[in-house]
Simulated assay, not measured.
Amino acid sequence: MLMSPAFIIVALGIAQIISWGTIVYGISVLSTPMAAELGWSQTFVFFGFSISLLVGGFVAKPVARFQEKNGGRATLTMGSVVAALGLAMLSQVADPVVYLFAWVVLGLASRLTLYDASFATLVEIHGTAARRPISLLALFGGLASTVYWPICHYVNAAYGWRVAWMVCAASVLVICTPLHLAMPRKGALLRGANGRNGAAADPPPLVPQALRAQAILLLAIAFACNSFVTVALNAHFIPAAVMLGASAATAVWIASIRGVFQTLGRLAEMLFGGNLNPFAFAMLSTGILVVAFLPLAIGGASTPALALFSILFGISIGLVTIVRGAVPLVLFGRDGYVGVLATIATPGLIVTAAAPTAYAFALDWIGPGWGFVLLFAVALASFAATALLARRFRTRSS
């Protein structure tokens, strides 16, 4: 029986909400009660998360080779099982070594389950026509923080952080695993898909083979800088807002609205940005992140300023997610797509592995105000890389 592409999008979307919400976003809410009970510093707690990013960078290419050989179904299903194991380990930790090993497990799980693996699954099905499915999938993923920050906050308040991690582990195992098992096997036919089984031929890539290395390098720099800011704020926006004077409840709701505007930004791209030049799209997404810091510069730590920052930050990272999946497909084509994603992601994951720990250190030593200035400078570097990409390659491909 042929499987509907709509089912694929919904199933992958639900799984992305859960996977991102548990593997990436849970620690920002649960780090404080964990540190208090276990007697560890916040820096050490986030060092574990940094380990997961570092591991993700090192395993990116082996995971890409595995997916190219075995397909998205096998990759995503394995990732769900591995993620559930790592999250369950976090719920039981008392020893620092076991804690760090749990994050090693989750680092592997992140490469097997998050956007790159899911985007590559869509490209496997749709070929270069996958930009719209990628945008649709990203609509779901943008809700992960909105769903799981409150879940982790209230489960922790009622039952403690260990139960919160168990809820995360159960979510992945019970919901994501069967959804990923329901994906089509590699090479299976789907109703309405435009991949290798479809009739439409893929257009040629915009960047010629001889210039691929330059374009990949610039994208890698842009994404690495952008990811540094995103990962640092995923982990520390709530604690930083509290340090600036917001209550914990206010910080949680301000942080949570980001997910809504991630989704709205992606919806706007899907409705209005389908024909947008990929270079302009990349510049727009990274440029909004730079602009997001202006409310803090003007309004300081007021609730409206923090909320506007969260809104613009959400729109930016919502668009960057689509850039990360769709723009390499347009620039470089379908062949070897999963390998290109891994090449772009690897340096970024290794660099951003330092983000949670480095930003925790910055908050301790220079405070949240100067910490935001530091992140502004990194965001500016990301925008500069995309602008240089546009300058070097737009005229060549037009």
Results as ranks from 00 to 15, higher is better:
residue 219 L to E: 11
residue 334 R to E: 13
residue 205 P to A: 07
residue 202 D to F: 11
residue 152 C to A: 12
residue 202 D to H: 12
residue 148 Y to M: 07
residue 144 A to R: 03
residue 389 L to N: 12
residue 182 A to K: 07
residue 44 F to A: 03
residue 187 G to P: 10
residue 336 G to Y: 14
residue 70 N to Y: 14
residue 388 L to E: 15
residue 149 W to L: 03
residue 182 A to V: 02
residue 210 A to K: 14
residue 244 L to F: 05
residue 79 G to H: 04
residue 18 I to N: 02
residue 269 E to D: 13
residue 13 G to M: 06
residue 27 I to S: 02
residue 277 N to D: 13
residue 314 G to V: 07
residue 364 D to P: 03
residue 293 F to R: 01
residue 147 V to W: 01
residue 310 S to C: 10
residue 347 P to W: 13
residue 373 V to A: 13
residue 105 V to Q: 02
residue 235 A to N: 05
residue 150 P to A: 07
residue 190 L to S: 05
residue 19 S to T: 13
residue 147 V to T: 04
residue 332 F to Y: 11
residue 223 F to T: 09
residue 210 A to F: 14
residue 243 M to I: 12
residue 260 V to T: 02
residue 192 G to L: 08
residue 119 F to M: 07
residue 57 G to M: 01
residue 145 S to V: 02
residue 305 A to N: 10
residue 169 A to S: 12
residue 285 S to T: 12
residue 332 F to I: 12
residue 307 A to W: 03
residue 282 A to I: 11
residue 259 G to S: 08
residue 263 T to C: 13
residue 276 L to V: 15
residue 3 M to R: 09
residue 205 P to T: 10
residue 192 G to Y: 10
residue 338 V to I: 13
residue 217 L to P: 06
residue 163 V to L: 06
residue 110 S to M: 10
residue 242 V to Q: 09
residue 19 S to Y: 03
residue 176 C to R: 00
residue 150 P to Q: 04
residue 145 S to N: 02
residue 240 A to R: 04
residue 346 T to H: 09
residue 264 L to T: 08
residue 327 V to N: 11
residue 342 A to I: 14
residue 27 I to P: 00
residue 78 M to E: 01
residue 198 G to F: 11
residue 136 L to E: 07
residue 137 L to Q: 04
residue 207 V to P: 07
residue 243 M to W: 05
residue 338 V to K: 02
residue 217 L to Q: 09
residue 199 A to I: 10
residue 102 A to Y: 04
residue 214 Q to I: 14
residue 91 S to Y: 03
residue 47 F to R: 01
residue 242 V to C: 00
residue 295 P to K: 11
residue 291 V to K: 09
residue 307 A to V: 06
residue 134 I to S: 08
residue 13 G to A: 10
residue 382 S to L: 12
residue 160 G to N: 02
residue 74 A to P: 12
residue 249 A to K: 07
residue 360 A to I: 01
residue 261 F to Q: 04
residue 118 S to A: 15
residue 327 V to F: 11
residue 87 L to W: 04
residue 377 A to R: 12
residue 200 A to E: 13
residue 263 T to K: 06
residue 379 A to T: 08
residue 259 G to A: 11
residue 272 F to Q: 15
residue 379 A to Y: 00
residue 71 G to C: 09
residue 258 R to I: 05
residue 389 L to G: 06
residue 77 T to Y: 02
residue 227 S to K: 04
residue 279 F to H: 07
residue 318 G to M: 09
residue 350 I to C: 14
residue 283 M to S: 07
residue 242 V to P: 00
residue 343 T to R: 14
residue 77 T to C: 11
residue 50 S to F: 02
residue 198 G to I: 08
residue 318 G to C: 11
residue 283 M to G: 07
residue 105 V to C: 03
residue 193 A to H: 08
residue 316 S to L: 14
residue 288 I to S: 01
residue 3 M to T: 06
residue 363 L to M: 10
residue 94 A to K: 05
residue 315 I to F: 10
residue 66 F to R: 02
residue 304 P to N: 06
residue 282 A to V: 11
residue 296 L to N: 01
residue 178 P to N: 08
